[in-house]
Nucleic acid binder design. Structure first.
Lengths: 203, 203
DNA sequence: CCTACCGATCGGTAGG
DNA sequence: CCTACCGATCGGTAGG
């Protein structure tokens, strides 16, 4: 503790000058653009103005960077969707609001790169990391399972709920493959179109 | 032509003993399981019982293998969905049939590995190959655009058609990320659930 | 956080 | 299709 305090003496506690955060942001962007395997730690270092060996002062390994990016991505989406849904009792209204929050976290400037890693790089994780990511994803998806259960009870949905959840989240998550930030449709418009498709109208 | 005929003299024309096809099948499976970048040409060679340099007797490069896998995947899906839709005038019935055909081509034993490459490895293509793949994907998606136009004219859909097509195909294509061949729901059941979600009932 | 470096791996090729 | 190999690249480390 003393030794570590000395190294960070010139800065407030818990703040490493944000170099760690810079690396994560660059890694997230590069992972999304080129994929985890095709991104080199040298790419990441160059993106933040470091030499090739320096990212390893902040992260034990490239896999550790990926895990950090993914956990950040899941937390952003979970927190933002949970906050948006809080206090909305009507399941149809909650669906519309949660779809919008999911899309804004998925495509918005803050979380886009992190979310993309969550959705497309699970394969690259080592077993222990995959288990942790899987558990956190499962916790988030519970929000949707509960909602869909209420919608079915209200007569707004038919059929298998687990399958329905996978199809709905699939439609939303697939947007990371085609969405263009310069295009006409923004996150909210996409979410609303999905709500229209699933519920028949906007609540 | 004469020179090529000599090399294949011992076999029927157009048949190279299926070694080329073996390589493509192994490459498709490995690309799906590990991704293009994480699959080595040595992995592919080993999977068909060859030495490391031998796949390059059949393909000019690893990128060429990927392109061949992807074009095969698009052709399989396009042909099979087009054949299934032929002669079905009612758009609601055609939707159900096309969704089933799409899912069977996407997850079935014949095309699963090839389709996964189409959906997840576009990033790895070189520009010229990406243009060709993009054009063929566009030709396939026209089948869906026409169908959705008819559905909207019949009052079964509302809102933006391009967005709706992307969401519907997204829901279907995302299945490659979670579908388990050993699970309960098969391709047809998944397709039917999507039809239920979009049309409100099964036509 | 940099310098200098290592061991391993990889796509691809020459020549047979 | 194999043998033998090359040049480049990559994740990671020691020492400062």
């Amino acid at each position: 503790m003393k030794a570590r305090a000395a190294a960070a003496a010139a800065r407030p506690a818990g703040d490493d000058g944000n170099r760690r955060g810079d690396i994560l942001a660059a890694a997230g962007r590069l992972f999304r653009e080129k994929g985890f395997k095709a991104t080199t730690t040298r790419d990441i270092a160059a993106a933040v103005g470091m030499r090739s060996g320096s990212p390893f002062y902040h992260f034990k390994s490239k896999h550790d960077m990926l895990l950090a990016v993914m956990l950040d991505g899941i937390r952003t989406i979970h927190d933002s969707v949970e906050a948006a849904a809080a206090g909305i009792a009507d399941p149809r209204q909650r669906f519309a609001v949660m779809a919008r929050a999911h899309m804004q976290a998925l495509l918005g400037p803050g979380g886009r790169d992190f979310a993309a890693a969550v959705l497309h790089e699970t394969r690259a994780l080592e077993p222990a990391a995959a288990a942790e990511v899987g558990a956190r994803k499962g916790a988030y998806e519970l929000l949707w399972s509960e909602l869909l259960g209420e919608l079915q009870a209200a007569g707004a949905l038919r059929g298998d709920l687990a399958l329905t959840r996978l199809l709905i989240l699939g439609a939303l998550n697939w947007t990371t493959q085609w969405w263009d930030p310069a295009g006409e449709a923004g996150p909210a418009a996409i979410a609303d179109q999905l709500t229209l498709l699933v519920l028949g109208d906007l609540p």
